[in-house]
Nucleic acid binder design. Structure first.
Length: 950
RNA sequence: GCCGGGGUGGCGAAAUUGGUAGACGCACCACGCUUAGGACGUGGCUCCCUCGGGAAUGGAGGUUCGAGUCCUCUCCCCGGCACCA
């Protein structure tokens, strides 16, 4: 091994020049021979500070692009720049630079850096979103949306970032703070442009199912869209005193089955009806004050403080459409104006939030769903009379000992709490006191509380010979002292009282099928029961299963079955300069009109003072004002907001297919040929933003017949995150940012590529600590491959080596499909070791090796290919898929009772008898058998032989 | 809290989908080369051990000839959503 590594700088420079000379990476989109493969990576924002983590995003997909080309596919692997955005503007404000120049300088630098990685990206189709030739089509598409009613201007509460001085989309607000700068967002009522993504919520959700994406990505989108199925129910509002009609309030609920338990109604403070109702309430000042306070609260303040607040609309009542009951009406900020109908029917017995509110405002709790428990030890018997009863279960605790009072049933051997039927009109607490006294003698009891609502318990009551349904009400008492009255002879014959410690309170010990609920309710203070069960106190529905009748109930009260979504319309207006101008003008009356297509691109003005303006910077442009006046007339005014940059990036992948076209946004024939994109690789931070927006855009364009498919991306891969060498997120603040230029200077681009490929599987959400040692190790591996060149000769390669090459080629191809380049590189390492064992390496074999190495280390492979007499470029060579001969022999693992005791080299078609005989020849096997008889043998030819001796 | 994804050596990870657990690397240890260090080479490297083996894939059970892989329960970590009715 004479060679001590290679001169990577020279090798890289020469190779990159050679590829440029051969024009290897300009994809011919119209090629008819090769099958197309569209591989997409998220195009970068030209921030100017490309760190080593960015390499991960480019070089690993590049390995795949190169591999696919060698497999004979016509690979489209394009790139561009997402070039509008705030940082350019902020830099401009800070340094007085021009945003366009700042952006262009950064792009120039990044093009060089990305090329230096040895990427095979196709720059000939580059798109730059801030170029008028691009954004003219962004504007054109926006106007298409406008024509379809998918772009709409309306007043709405919006999230405002005071630091960036612009509104934000919901997706850009994280925990009530601006996603970009962390400033707490404010809520403002503004007139803004929205794209109606909510119209597509259902399809965005449904179409996810068929996509072969990772489940966590799909789940994140599902959660973001947030579908819930329920009903809209209408409550009439009237004055309490005179029953004069005050209109109708529509509520959205997912639990219309609990309608009989609605004990009050809540409107969001911002609900449009409230304004009108104020005239009729007895406490208008209070209502106004509450609305004022809530409107001043930020999103974060509202969600941080979950204590319920609200104000009654005194004198207003709502009529329950199911029961006709009149119930009070409140406004409270736990009801959101922006979700559902902005109004809810409150069912404290079966909704935790309503329960909390009811407790605070002392509103009644009415149970209408009873959990169902069936006593499996005592099930209903056929042909027995069914008797329903309301009962109490008296639970008596002795606070001194912590024990509970039970009854031991003499004949039956049961242990239970004290139970008894409630007579018509009898008070439950009185019933319980009476029963406890009669059955146990204890009379000095303090009533503590009732444990939740009634429980529906089904069992066969042997002593009465009937099938029973008991609605059990659990009442908790505490023993005040041991005072005991005498217990009658009859009762004493049936059972005797005994004290149970807490550990005895289990279903195993106690004769109550509802023990789980009793324990749960004893442990924590009672709260809402939100599960399913049997309807009670619900008029004619009483006794029915809630899920069975839920939609019948909706129908019977004139409700409407609807789906509701958490996702809100996409707010796209930005009060910033460096973005795509919204191609809208306003007539003197203030009505919005599209800028006619002949005036596109609707250019971003340049005479803008964006450093001082507090409103939209475009408002300061004289040129824009004059332009509008000139084209549309006196009194017409421009739209001064720009579009969210996520609009620009929602369709860029379509533009790659015809990036220079001045007559259309893309090319229909090419869209048909190249869509959908086979694989889209990016970062997890875009799951509920870019990725969702792009899917929405694509569906809207599909409905406009502008694209041929309704989903843009077949597969989506989210890569892991590269941490600094200290295990922290790379950041200038920590001083742990790894500079790619330094690393590449020392180890070479190929070493970094191999390091990233080998580090871990790509499509996983892991965090990986950057390690110089890892790159060093990758470099050592490359040096070994380079050293092999010195041993290349003209001899033929052994069949064994050629077989190993073929198997490795297949292994890498399989791993590459799943982006598991870590195991692919491992296989290459094993193969290289095999090469190192040869005295002379055959040229053909070595060239095969270089072809396998080429996607990973494209520069070195090219250099060695040329050095050892390869033609043109290794990157034009095909993937070496040799035939793999079936091997005649295989290692069979010999086990005794499932434990490995040895191995055998056997013909793959060896029979069981032969295998057993051979195995018995192994000393370790005989020893393990220890003379015992073989009861059973399991033989999988070519794999395993298990001898079982009981 | 709800939903999703995961827990395998000191670390990154493998494991033909029920058939040799830890491939391939990093780090570490020993030896060799060397004046020395580095680089390189050879070997070792889950734990325990009386050197025959034994235990081990977060934990506890189960199914199976055989379980990292399948089932039940449970603990922990990561991600998403969260006053969404």
């Amino acid at each position: 091994m004479a060679r001590k590594g290679y001169d990577h700088r020279k090798v890289e420079e020469v190779a990159q020049k050679k590829w440029a000379g051969l024009d290897l990476y300009s994809t011919d989109l119209r090629d008819e021979e090769k099958e197309p493969y569209y591989l997409l990576i998220e195009f970068p924002y030209p921030s100017g500070d490309l760190h080593i983590g960015h390499w991960y995003a480019y070089v690993v997909p590049d390995i795949y692009a190169r591999f696919k080309r060698m497999q004979g596919r016509n690979v489209l692997f394009p790139i561009g720049f997402d070039a509008f955005g705030l940082p350019a503007e902020n830099a401009a404000m800070k340094n007085g630079a021009d945003p366009r120049r700042w952006t262009e300088e950064n792009m120039a630098r990044m093009r060089e850096q990305i090329r230096s990685m040895g990427t095979s990206l196709d720059w000939s189709k580059e798109v730059v979103t801030c170029d008028p030739s691009y954004y003219t089509w962004t504007q054109w598409l926006f106007l298409k949306f406008f024509e379809q009613g998918l772009a709409e201007r309306r007043e709405a509460p919006v999230k405002w970032c005071p630091k960036d001085r612009t509104v934000l989309a919901n997706e850009q607000v994280i925990d009530g703070a601006c996603e970009r700068c962390g400033t707490e967002v404010e809520e403002k009522q503004l007139t803004q442009w929205f794209l109606k993504i909510t119209k597509y919520a259902d399809r965005l959700l449904r179409d996810l199912d068929a996509l072969p994406w990772r489940e966590d990505i799909k789940e994140a989108q599902r959660a973001w869209i947030g579908e819930s199925e329920g009903a809209k129910l209408t409550f009439s509002l009237e004055t309490a005193a005179t029953a004069a009609s005050l209109g109708k309030a529509e509520v959205f609920t997912t639990r219309p089955d609990t309608i009989f338990g609605a004990t009050y109604l809540v409107l969001a403070p911002e609900h449009p009806m409230v304004e009108g109702l104020i005239d009729f309430v007895q406490n208008p000042a209070e209502v106004r004050a509450y609305r004022e306070t809530t409107s001043r609260k930020t999103e974060r303040e509202r969600s941080e403080n979950k204590d319920k607040t609200g104000v009654a609309l005194a004198g207003v009542v709502a009529v329950n459409p199911a029961s006709g009951e009149r119930i009070p009406v409140y406004i409270a900020d736990y009801v959101l104006a922006s979700y559902g109908t902005g109004a809810v029917m409150a069912v404290p017995a079966h909704d935790e939030r309503d329960f909390e509110f009811a407790r605070r405002f002392r509103l009644p709790v009415r149970h209408v769903i009873a959990p169902r428990r069936v006593d499996e030890r005592n099930p209903h018997l056929p042909d027995k009379e069914l008797v329903k009863r309301n009962i109490i279960v008296g639970i008596v605790r002795n606070p001194k000992t912590g024990n509970y009072l039970g009854l031991s049933w003499k004949k039956q051997g049961w242990i239970s709490f004290i139970t008894g039927g409630i007579e018509e009109g009898e008070d439950m607490v009185e019933t319980a006191r009476r029963e406890i006294a009669e059955e146990t003698g204890y009379t000095n009891l303090r009533y503590v509380r009732t444990l939740g609502g009634p429980v529906h318990v089904e069992f066969y009551a042997a002593h009465k010979d009937v099938n029973r349904i008991a609605y059990a009400n659990h009442l908790l008492f505490e023993l005040e002292d041991e005072t005991r009255a005498e217990v009658s002879k009859e009762e004493q014959d049936l059972h005797e009282a005994l004290w149970l410690d807490e550990g005895k309170l289990t279903r195993d010990q106690m004769d109550h099928a509802q023990m789980d609920l009793i324990l749960e309710r004893l442990r924590s203070d009672d709260c809402a029961y939100t599960d399913d069960g049997v309807l009670i106190n619900s008029g004619t529905w009483t006794g029915r299963d809630n899920r069975e009748v839920i939609w019948e109930m909706v129908e019977s009260i004139g409700g409407e079955r609807v789906k509701n979504y958490r996702i809100r319309d996409w707010l796209v207006s930005r009060q910033r300069y460096w973005g795509c101008p919204i191609p809208i003008v306003y007539d003197p009356e203030g009505a919005a009109h599209p800028v006619p297509p002949e005036h596109l691109p609707w250019l971003l003005p340049e005479d803008v003072d964006f450093t001082t303006s507090d409103a939209a910077p475009l408002a300061s442009s004289q040129e824009l004002k004059e332009r509008v006046t000139k084209l549309f007339g006196e009194g017409w005014t421009p739209e001064c907001d720009t579009l969210d940059t996520f609009v620009d990036s929602s369709w860029y992948y379509l533009r790659y297919l015809d990036s220079k076209d001045e007559g259309d946004f893309s090319d229909q024939a090419m869209l048909k040929k190249w869509l959908p994109i086979e694989r889209y690789s990016g970062g997890s931070e875009h799951t509920t933003m870019h990725l969702l927006y792009a899917r929405f855009f694509h569906k809207a364009l599909y409905d406009l017949a502008l694209v041929p498919e309704s989903e843009p991306f077949v597969e989506r891969y989210n890569r892991g995150i590269i941490l600094g060498p200290d295990g922290q997120k790379m950041s200038k603040r920590w001083g742990n940012v790894v500079n790619p230029d330094d690393v590449v200077k020392q180890y070479g681009a190929d070493a970094v590529r191999v390091y990233y490929a080998f580090m871990a599987p790509y499509n996983e959400s892991g965090h990986y600590v950057w390690s110089d040692k890892g790159v060093e190790s990758a470099r050592r591996f490359l040096d070994r491959i380079a050293s092999l060149a010195d041993t290349v000769g003209d001899a033929d390669a052994s069949e064994a080596l050629m077989q190993m090459i073929a198997r490795t080629a297949r292994k890498i191809a399989e791993d590459a499909e799943r982006f598991k380049f870590n195991t692919a590189v491992a296989a290459l390492m094993v193969l290289v070791r095999e090469f190192e064992g040869q005295e002379e390496v055959s040229r053909t074999a070595y060239h095969d090796l270089l072809r396998l190495v080429a996607p990973f280390a494209p520069h070195l492979a090219e250099h060695l290919w040329e050095e050892t007499g390869g033609e043109r470029s290794v990157h034009e060579a095909s993937w070496p898929e040799g035939a793999i001969a079936a091997s005649a022999e295989a290692t069979v693992i010999v086990q005794v009772n499932g434990k490995k005791r040895g191995e055998l080299l056997l013909a793959v078609d060896a029979g069981e008898e032969e295998a057993v005989a051979a195995a018995r020849g192994l000393e370790a096997v005989e020893k393990a058998l220890a003379g015992q008889e073989i009861a059973k043998t399991v033989y999988v030819p070519g794999r395993i032989l298990n001898l079982v001796v009981v």
